[in-house]
């Protein structure tokens, strides 16, 4: 394997000391943060990806399909997807907040979201491991993790039914905000996360916390889908770029 260039992209170029949050910088309520994504971050893993939305940074790698070793074998006809999420100590959350965010629950959400797109019946008696590391948390990291995991699975050449993009919306002081930052998440009274299947236009996961009126809920889901559609285009472009790069070599 030859030497790779040091091209971690925006991970190394974020300016520090910018105290102004994005909405203060006139981001519209229905506007996404600029996204950067890349595949093949970890050259030894089967597949890997990196996703950055301004100050939220998530890296993901996929191992597998690996042979099931012992343990319970309740599903031998299908692959088991296991997901591990970790956060860096300096990711920006205080210790008590870290506890509040039940990582195990989040792992389950990512797993179930991925199960809806992976052709698990193609990989009997095997496990697909998805490892996510949240490097820096500035809001919407769960949805970033799901999108990032989907990108890594595609990079690992694991058979997928279709591509998935995930996006979230919060209700802060009666205003719906797409792709919230950490501060917006903190003052929100309710949040909705939707993972959107890019080809069929269907929704596979809806995860809601807090309080939302029925009308707001419907509106929020619509808003997340519009955001996820934009992300899906970026996911596809990212994979296409990688593909053309590979062919060129």
């Amino acid at each position: 394997m030859g030497l790779r260039e040091f091209d971690y992209g925006p991970l190394v170029s974020v300016e520090r000391g910018t105290e102004v949050t994005t909405r203060e910088r006139k981001r519209q309520w229905n506007e996404l943060r600029p996204l950067f994504m890349r595949t093949r971050m970890v050259s030894h893993a089967a597949g890997s990806s990196y996703l950055e939305a301004e100050n939220s940074k998530v890296i993901c790698s996929v191992n597998g399909p690996l042979a099931n070793t012992g343990g319970r074998t309740e599903a031998i006809e299908r692959a088991k997807i296991s997901c591990y999420i970790s956060r860096t100590k300096f990711c920006g959350l205080e210790d008590d907040e870290l506890e509040k965010r039940a990582t195990t629950e989040y792992e389950g959400i990512v797993c179930r979201a991925l199960e809806s797109i992976v052709r698990v019946e193609q990989y009997p008696k095997s496990t697909i491991e998805v490892h996510v590391l949240v490097i820096e948390d500035d809001g919407s990291t769960l949805s970033a993790a799901i999108t990032c995991a989907c990108l890594a699975l595609a990079d690992a050449k694991i058979e997928l039914r279709e591509l998935m993009a995930c996006c979230s919306v919060v209700n802060a002081n009666g205003q719906l905000l797409l792709d919230p930052t950490l501060d917006e998440e903190k003052e929100a009274s309710g949040s909705v996360l939707v993972s959107y299947l890019a080809t069929s236009g269907k929704v596979s996961t809806v995860f809601q916390t807090g309080q939302l009126a029925y009308d707001e809920m419907a509106q929020a889901v619509e808003l997340t889908i519009s955001g996820a559609r934009e992300i899906a285009v970026l996911v596809r472009n990212c994979l296409r770029q990688r593909e053309s790069k590979d062919r060129g070599l």
Binding site: M1, T18, N55, K57, F90, G92, I135, E136, D137, D138
Partner: peptide
């Protein structure tokens, strides 16, 4: 250096891969 805004100081080192 300095890519993580939430840390007081940060660095990333790459030796090959």
């Amino acid at each position: 250096v300095g890519s993580i805004r939430t840390a007081l100081g940060s660095a990333m080192v790459k030796c090959g891969s």
